[in-house]
Simulated assay, not measured.
Amino acid sequence: KAAALYLDGLFTADGIVPPSPRYLELIAERARAAGVVYVADEVQAGHGRTGQGLWSFGPSGVTPDLVTLGKPMGNGHPVAAVVARSEIVDHFGVDHEFFSTFGGNPVACAAALAVLDVIDSEGLLANAATVGNGLQSAIRGLAGTHPAIGDVRGRGLMVGVELVVDPATREPDEQLAAQVMNGMRERGVLISATGRERNVLKIRPPLVISADQAAIIVEAIDASLTAANA
Rank of each mutant, 00 (worst) to 15 (best):
A31F: 05
R32H: 10
R32I: 07
R32D: 08
A33W: 02
A33G: 13
A33K: 12
A34G: 06
G35I: 04
G35V: 08
V36N: 04
V36E: 09
V36F: 05
V37D: 05
Y38Q: 00
V39W: 04
V39H: 10
A40D: 01
A40R: 00
D41R: 00
D41C: 05
D41Y: 04
E42N: 10
E42R: 05
V43K: 04
V43S: 01
V43T: 10
V43C: 08
V43H: 02
Q44V: 14
A45E: 00
A45C: 12
G46T: 03
G46P: 03
G46I: 05
H47M: 15
H47V: 10
H47C: 11
H47L: 15
G48A: 10
G48P: 05
G48T: 07
G48K: 03
R49W: 04
R49G: 00
Q52L: 15
Q52T: 08
Q52R: 15
G53K: 11
G53P: 09
G53I: 08
L54P: 03
W55K: 00
W55R: 02
F57K: 01
G58K: 04
S60P: 02
G61L: 06
T63Q: 11
P64V: 03
D65K: 01
L66P: 01
V67K: 01
V67Y: 01
T68Q: 09
T68P: 01
T68C: 08
L69M: 14
L69W: 11
G70C: 04
G70H: 08
G70I: 09
M73L: 15
M73N: 02
M73V: 11
G74R: 05
N75C: 08
N75R: 13
N75Q: 13
G76V: 12
H77R: 13
H77Y: 14
P78D: 09
V79K: 03
A80Y: 11
A80I: 06
V82G: 07
V82M: 14
V83N: 02
A84P: 02
R85K: 15
R85P: 03
S86R: 15
I88Y: 15
I88T: 03
I88W: 14
F92D: 11
F92V: 13
F92K: 06
F92N: 07
F92A: 15
G93E: 11
G93R: 14
G93W: 12
G93Y: 09
V94I: 13
V94C: 07
V94E: 15
H96L: 13
H96P: 01
H96A: 13
E97S: 13
F98S: 11
F98R: 08
F99V: 12
F99A: 14
S100D: 14
S100A: 15
S100I: 01
S100F: 13
S100R: 12
S100W: 12
T101F: 11
T101I: 11
F102C: 09
G103C: 08
G104Q: 10
G104N: 11
N105I: 04
N105R: 09
N105K: 08
P106N: 11
V107P: 00
V107W: 03
A108F: 07
A108H: 06
C109A: 15
C109K: 13
C109E: 14
C109R: 14
A110T: 12
A110M: 09
A110I: 04
A110D: 13
A111G: 02
